[in-house]
Amino acid sequence: MIIIGLFLVIISAAVLIGVGVWGMVYNKNLVKMLLSLEVSFNGITLLVLYLASTTGVLGIVKLGAYIVFLGIALAIGEISIIVSVILYMFKEKMLNEISQDEVRSEE
């Protein structure tokens, strides 16, 4: 019996990124697209930390932690700005539903 240990981390990161891109491409809902982007972001942070913790491309172990720390901080800013814009558009009745189709029909 083969017990796969850290291989599961790569599998998990790959599935997270794939599912996130899947949802991002084929969801027409703005909030759903944002949530899919966040799922992808979680997978990417996991992959970066995995590559950093092994002797891979990110040979320095601390470098991966710095990259992920910066990424989390930027993700918070991105979330706050995008959600605020969506809320503003919703309150100003630019969107009846939070959907990409509505944005396109405004143009």
Partner: peptide
Amino acid sequence: SWVITLFIFVLIVVIGISVGIAPSE
């Protein structure tokens, strides 16, 4: 969507195996 997801999954797994799998540190 399935094709894109499968492609990204295989790409990341292959890169992860070939690059970052050496268990030393």
